[in-house]
Design a protein around this nucleic acid. Sequence first.
RNA 1: GCGGACGUGGCGAAAUGGUAGACGCAAGGGACUUAAAAUCCCUUGGGAGAAAUCCCGUGCCGGUUCGAGUCCGGCCGUCCGCACCA
Length: 864
Amino acid sequence: MPPDSSKNERYNARAAEARWQQTWDERGIFATKNDDPRPKYYVLEMFPYPSGRIHMGHVRNYTMGDVVARFKRAMGMNVLHPMGWDAFGMPAENAAIDRKVHPKAWTYDNIAAMKKQLQSMGLSLDWAREVATCDPSYYKHQQKMFLDFLKAGLVERKQSKVNWDPVDHTVLANEQVIDGRGWRSGAEVEQRDLTQWFFKISDYSEDLLKALETLERWPEKVRLMQKNWIGRSEGLLVRFMLDTATAPNNESELEIFTTRPDTLFGAKFMALSPDHPLATAAAAKNPKLAAFIAECKKMGTAQAEIDTAEKLGFDTGIRAIHPFDASWKLPVYVANFILMDYGTGAIFGCPAHDQRDFDFATKYALPIRTVVAPDGDASFKVGAEPYVGPGRIVNSGFLDGLEVEEAKKKVGARLKADGNGESTTIWRLRDWLISRQRYWGCPIPIVHCDSCGTVPVKAADLPVKLPDDVSFDRPGNPLDHHPTWKHVGCPKCGKPARRETDTCDTFVDSSWYFARFCSPRAAEPVAREAGDYWLPVDQYVGGVEHAILHLLYSRFFTRAMRKTGHANLDEPFAGLFTQGMVCHESYKSQAGKWLYPEEIERTADGSVVETATGQPVTVGRREVMSKSKKNVVAPARIIDEYGADTARLFMLSDSPPERDLEWSEAGVDGAFRFIQRLWRDVTEPEIPFAAKGAARPNALAPAAEAALRAVHKTIASVTENLEGFRFNVAVAQIRTLANTLGELDPKADGAGWVRREAYETLVRLVGPMVPHVAEAMWAELGHATMLCDEGWPKADPALLVDGTVTLAVQVNGKLRGTIDIPRDAPEEVARTAALAVANVQTAMAGKTARKIVVVPNKIVNIVV
RNA sequence: GCGGACGUGGCGAAAUGGUAGACGCAAGGGACUUAAAAUCCCUUGGGAGAAAUCCCGUGCCGGUUCGAGUCCGGCCGUCCGCACCA
């Protein structure tokens, strides 16, 4: 239930929050200097796409980052906490098409609206460093780096099979195709042969893989995903001689890649990719083969089909010669499951020890020869399934009896000696295709000249600005249709030439924004001194959906920037935290339409009905909030009704931050109640606070002393849990402390002093989480200073340990009682006290203890 | 198919190998109130018992240990990533 005038809402969040935000802003408290003697700390949340409205995912993400920022600030660090806009991209163009708004106007309007919403969250951001990637003052530097990368050999224009998104009318990088569909449009992706721009991310395959080990503060999961994506595999290039009489143009050899050279004696066929040059050559002389290849390619347009397609092959008639036996001929097939861009686009097939080869051989009735036996048993024969496990080699001449790994080495050595083999490492990672046939992106600063070829734009002529006067009334790239924009003189020869009309993938924009924040107005992409001071980002916070795309690209960019002198660091993000998503159940009306949570209500018997019609509603499982299912709750509404502190506190409570969070109105109410309760505790104390700065009374009653100890224990544990991103536990501990203080007997000696001590601490502990009400309480406690300028409370070590401890007493591992004894008492004391417990005696049933385990200050276990 | 993560009350969850269920949500009972809201107090894993207390309990089956939610092995289930990668 949202608060309203009928409720006893003592703290008016709406008024107070706006006031504190204004105060922070006026005093420039969160403006960060690059020359501050305190140790630096750079905390960054993934910047948003300016859709115009923040969603709950943003609220969760930015709340976490803000807690870290405010916490580190209180810990005495010079904190950089900037924000910007990932402002290029398709939605702006779609808006232009659908609503006749210019992408630029649409984007900047959205930025303004969204900035307001972000500001209402009370984030400790340095807005002076704000950047928008669609601004020429930003993409100018990106173009400069493109040219520098080009000079450094990190950019390449090449023809290749690329993923074409038929809905967005653009190509996509491999990473951006998920389950055969475009990451944004969801359309089935097609394969097309096009000439496009690539960043040579594969130059860094080895380094990107190796350096993952150094990223100790990254989630293991993300590192593993990147490792799999980079996909290193070690193997052997093997040259097979061809029976030239059977080859279309007397070709004499065929090179294949294998990771299982030990199974070479089990080879029964060779297979070529339909795109392999030898296949093409053979097809030229064999219409049936040509038809088969055409069939393969046709089938291959939709990725989803490729995945489910049956294995098909066509015998080319070509015969290859086994490298260890000149009389052994192998048929060469063209097969639809061989990829041209992995390895050499050709393999040898060993049906006995590879699932695909087995399936293929079974389909085409090829023989199967077992060459690996699990126990080295020579009579072992592969039957209904291939054997892919470890074992010893059989039926393989000079390899017989060797373990698989030994055999690999021996085959490799022999082939190398013969000049037919070479060790090699193959990577799954492909170069990053960055061309996009779209308007609303960073122009690629290249000119195509008929005489000079592709010519870089001169650095002095940057930025290449997007033209404003574009129309979206026909499909395709508006830059291409523009009457004048692309016509330009060649930078080299001056003759009429054409601008590149492709723009950069928007993931390029977001690959270096973290570095731009160090010196957002610098004349170069990153002022070196600023970069050297701030980078790397100490703590990055964002969604796990970027585990590969954005994070891998940024890692590449960091390397490319180092190579071109724009930065000098190994890795962009020293610490990474991937937060869970915000979920909500979904509702469908009888008519089958999705309903917003506001459009339903729960009846007394717990059933759910549509408010407007009173008809029952189908309640769907809880899943990520998404506009399409209307299972969304607008942060703006929550902040307006409850205040930002409530929204923030709810985001941090209950669920561990890396896990999905279930949005619940009841949970929000709980957060709201706690904030009101803290406010009451401070403003209407049951026990009057001692005067500010009052000296500690000489004697504290035991209850007061215990409360003081609880305060210091809470400091220690909250600090530890904030460091470890366990916000939910930190919140619980703060609540526990509030409960403990509520139980403090007002009559206890020193209660008033402890009370002040406790609340001065409590307010500082909740400061990073609910900064507005914390400031208000700080002021209520009589402080003229700003809470956000205060240091973090320090726990007094003497108050962290109690004089007496409670030990559990077990008999045979079962709890039978507890004892209170002095801390660090001799074992004998614990033993005696434990045995004296009546219940323990009963449980021992008159038997004598065979053994007594005493863990000091923890437990006594009596074994009978 | 391969790889990974996770399975704890009605729900979200806590718990360096040492008193399982902190903290919160929901529910029930009570106080205050003309009434409600707000607030406060009590109960709340299951079972037995008047109570003390006892038995059972962290997906399932085993193991290690004085002691296992936690470590090891094997299943089952859920989620995520990759997937004809030779």
